[in-house]
Design a protein around this nucleic acid. Sequence first.
DNA 1: TCTGACCTTCCAGTAAACTGGAAGGTCAAG
DNA 2: CTTGACCTTCCAGTTTACTGGAAGGTCAGA
Lengths: 130, 130
Amino acid sequence: MIRIGETAAAAGLTAKTLRFYEDRGLLPAADRAPNGYRDYPHETVSRLEFIRRGRTAGLTLAQIGDILSVRDTGQAPCVHVKDLLANQLRDLDAQIAELTALRATVAEFHDAAAAGDPAACDPERICSYL
Amino acid sequence: MIRIGETAAAAGLTAKTLRFYEDRGLLPAADRAPNGYRDYPHETVSRLEFIRRGRTAGLTLAQIGDILSVRDTGQAPCVHVKDLLANQLRDLDAQIAELTALRATVAEFHDAAAAGDPAACDPERICSYL
DNA sequence: TCTGACCTTCCAGTAAACTGGAAGGTCAAG
DNA sequence: CTTGACCTTCCAGTTTACTGGAAGGTCAGA
């Protein structure tokens, strides 16, 4: 019998999170011990690790749930996974590009501020660096 | 007189969003026409575009608000202004680094998926590509 | 027996950034 | 004078991924 806390800890999560995942359909409803406690099979840990890896890769729980449900029907979800990852890569590249552009803008402001003489800054006046 | 809808459309936003930004302090309270309608100065569009760029790049409204308030508060000593900008720059660099690392991880997964045979997917591990 | 660490359910709240809708005012055109 | 497209305020809901807490059940050890 692997109780929820132990299972969660093994995957680096909390019991609360496991109940939440069950609620969201990412974990099948666990068997129950006579006392009502959830009793997890050993595979649950690798399933949780899979979820965690997906999260680390920036996938949403819905996307991970899609992969898992495809797998649960017995099909290999690898093609689906590949598509999701390609999508993720595209999003990530766009985000990095935007962030880099913004950094350049902020850096311009900062360089202008750094080039000025702080002592010459009149507190009563609007700072001319921005 | 530039009304809220026109201003919003010019920046690719909605009137609702502009009122929300005003509520959050990202937009100064607009002047009002005699009928109570908000009346925006022309600069508002570039301010909104700045906000939009920041948002697209994944900055929070709070972070964008910090930058804008630096820009707005002429009373702040220039050294403080420079520090705030340096802070934003540091955050931006950290964010770019984080996203770049994530991209590398995702790319690794993706390359493995693209190179592999879908039939070789090990059901025990759920999907060998993640 | 009691304490403490588990477990159960259910309900609420959090942050972020809107979005929707109700109820009503304004104004130019037909 | 009415229609329709604007505008106003205020309040409530959405999404994501949890997290907190109340109220109570279970069980091993001192």
